[in-house]
Computed example of a mutant assay.
Amino acid sequence: MDLNISVELTSAKKQKPEIDQLSFGKYFTDHMFIMDYDAGKGWHDPRIIPYQPISLDPAAKVFHYGQTVFEGMKAYKTAEGRILMFRPYKNLQRLNRSNARLSIPALDENVIMEALRKLVLVDEEWIPDEQGTSLYIRPFVIATQATLGVSPSEQYHFMIILSPVGSYYAEGINPVSIFVESEYVRAVTGGVGNAKTGGNYAAGLKAQQEATDKGYSQVLWLDGVHRKYIEEVGSMNVFFKVGGKVITPALNGSILDGVTRDSVIQLLRYWDIEVEERAISINELVEAYRNGTLEEAFGTGTAAVISPIGELNWQGDKLALNEGRTGPLSAKIYDFMTGIQRGTLEDPFGWVVKL
């Protein structure tokens, strides 16, 4: 399809929140992008319109069969007024992998990148520039065909909405506490655990709620077959520094291939820090804690970037890491990643894209 994206500007701009009011995903900008799909016609009618509710038939397949995928990205504004994005094509490639797993038609990544660029520039004034803030970008697809019956939809909406955000966690870069989940299962190999689809997150809500009630920020998921191998921390990939070496669970079909995860692995190797991608059991981790070789743990993801882990609760045992403080490696990674994302540090990898 061509790149002729129509633009309809709002006639009633919203009041922007103060910087100290920003949390995660609470406020939304003045405009959004939408594009339609019809079988036999393909993706068509790309347009930027005022942010508004959408109207769907009650029989739309997304409501009944969960055929939907999404992504999470960020735009940053530098002190010089440049607008930067971090590895956007990596996210769009993953979006299409998720589409394939959910039987959703592929999107032209160049078209979506142009739509994203135009939308961000239309709402440029919404990009906060304080340290720790950014413009969160949420592309997503929903199945809209109004018919019941378990089969892929023949109609879809692809949309992009934008939200100025502060820190994902109220703790910010300070360590969070994690509850190791041993009862519930999020995903198994062969399922949709490696796709960014709503069902994965719905499957985790019960465990997350119970962890929150116990005073924990997130859950650490174990594998769904053996219930012993570490997979993810809620909405993040996870890393452990053990005996000077960094270990992260290998991608096995049920773990999301995180863009930040991949970036951290590349960064550590650039720094000549040994990294292993392999299966790691909770028992191995507890043993490393007991013998004093578990030095740090942290989660990685677009929303939080780096989230140090200060405590793990495994079957009632509270494992305090690094005396509850942010470890030196976690801090170094965070400072470097956010530095290149915001344009204050040199990007040796060519990850940053200027809009």
Rank of each mutant, 00 (worst) to 15 (best):
D262C: 05
G172N: 14
T68G: 11
V122K: 02
D129I: 05
E232R: 14
G81L: 07
G215S: 10
I340L: 06
S11M: 09
Q155G: 05
G292D: 03
L116P: 01
A202R: 09
L162H: 07
Y270V: 06
M1D: 06
F63N: 04
L148Q: 09
R47S: 03
G327K: 02
T260C: 06
P308D: 03
V305F: 00
G42K: 13
E181S: 09
R97V: 04
E287N: 14
F158H: 11
S151W: 00
D347C: 03
A250S: 14
G40I: 13
A60P: 04
E284K: 12
A195E: 02
P328N: 06
G224W: 01
Y136E: 01
I309M: 10
K13V: 05
A100Y: 06
Y229G: 02
E109L: 12
A195Y: 01
P105C: 13
P308H: 09
K13C: 00
L205Q: 12
E231H: 04
I137P: 01
Y51R: 11
H64S: 10
Y76F: 15
N313A: 14
K206Q: 12
R97L: 13
I127D: 03
G310T: 08
G299N: 08
T197C: 15
R278D: 02
Y156I: 12
G204W: 04
E346H: 06
A297W: 00
W126I: 12
R94F: 02
K332G: 05
F24W: 14
R290M: 01
G301Q: 11
I34W: 00
E232C: 05
A279I: 11
G42S: 10
W43T: 12
R117D: 00
A331R: 15
E323Q: 15
E210S: 09
S23T: 15
G81A: 11
S134D: 04
N283V: 13
S151E: 15
L102D: 02
G40M: 10
A202F: 01
P50L: 04
L3M: 14
S151Q: 14
F336R: 13
T144P: 01
M1F: 07
N313D: 15
T293A: 08
L256W: 03
H31C: 07
T326M: 12
Q266K: 15
L148P: 04
P58I: 11
G339N: 08
P46G: 06
W351V: 09
F33H: 09
E284F: 05
V225C: 04
E183S: 09
G253H: 03
V219C: 04
I142C: 05
T300Y: 03
K77F: 02
V219E: 03
L251K: 07
I173Q: 06
D223A: 12
K318A: 12
V192A: 08
R186D: 05
T10V: 07
K13T: 08
L135C: 13
R101K: 15
T302E: 04
A187S: 15
V238G: 02
D38C: 09
N237Q: 07
N96T: 08
G243D: 11
N322Y: 15
G42Y: 08
S254T: 13
M337I: 15
T344H: 08
F28S: 13
A320Y: 07
V176W: 02
I230F: 04
